[in-house]
Design a protein around this nucleic acid. Structure first.
Lengths: 158, 158
DNA sequence: AAAAATATGTCAGCATTATTGACGTATTTT
DNA sequence: AAAATACGTCAATAATGCTGACATATTTTT
């Protein structure tokens, strides 16, 4: 008596049934998050190839614009990457004139980061299609619904 | 008369004000998505380093488990990566005994992909902490709220 | 049956983003 | 004066992605 009811059973331990864990694990949301994020970053990615930048540059230019005067340490903490990973992209953004460094007025060891006008423009251009996508995803949802989504996303963080 | 009201104005075009676009662009959700996804993938990442695999392996083993019998072409369409990018990780997963290939019964050019028991176990182990995180993020939300979140995430896709 | 199309595998080379660990300099704190 | 901190930099490496070309087996079209 075969242990598998499949038609072939060529190799004994092949699983032909979808993983569906009886509702214990929420595969649906796991996949929705994957697809949502995959397409969410695809918009800026397309813009960035034209400037020769990548996703890492996007993140840096975004957060520096959101919080001008943040330090290199702040940025490392926000992005959760290593100093060396940041160094390259930050240098390129500085060399290209999108970001400038200013020695901290109180602690001169710090390098406070500020966007130039070009940096601001770039950050806005990258955020625009993402924002349109978000608006489309809400599709006229109520403020309460929007709050629910935000609460969920906040809860996903460590 | 200086064009900027900042204290230093060392370099004229430094922007010291946070990018806040008067509500035209939804920076908050943009950032929430970044942070949520960053932490969402960190759980499986930690597990994967032990097996010597990475995020790409996770995606492959996940989708093959969710839809056993899917072809290589299906997987490329789902992941939206190139054949060569997939080839490496898929080969490693096959060599390590997590996934097996079976020639398509109707179209023998196809390679249908199936998880082994080890592959199923791995996919479940990776999904578990993500599922727990999702449950925590919902924090006892109603079914209606859960549906709103799903609708939002679905709407984020192309 | 021959030609074209398809599904997959593979080769070679390259880019981006990430890692670790070490070390140097300037500056601040102890 | 010594220790700690913030930052920059060097060297080496890994994971994941890309392009373009080409080979094989198989199926579909002509």
């Amino acid at each position: 008596m075969p242990r598998q009811t499949s038609q072939k059973a060529a190799k004994p331990e092949l699983l032909a049934t979808p993983m569906e864990n009886a509702g214990i694990i929420d595969f649906e949301i796991i996949e929705l998050l994957f697809f949502a994020y995959r397409d969410f970053v695809s918009d800026p990615d397309q813009i960035l190839v034209k400037s020769g930048f990548g996703r890492a540059h996007h993140r840096v230019v975004h957060f520096v614009n959101r919080e001008p005067g943040m330090t290199v340490a702040d940025l490392l903490e926000t992005l959760k990457i290593t100093k060396q990973s940041l160094a390259r992209v930050l240098k390129q953004l500085i060399d290209s004139g999108y970001i400038r460094q200013v020695a901290g007025p109180e602690d001169r060891r710090q390098r406070k980061l500020y966007p130039t006008q070009a940096g601001r423009d770039l950050a806005l251009a990258l955020a625009e299609p993402q924002s349109r996508r978000i608006e489309r995803a809400f599709g006229g949802a109520s403020d309460a619904t929007r709050e629910s989504v935000k609460r969920f996303l906040r809860g996903m963080q460590d």
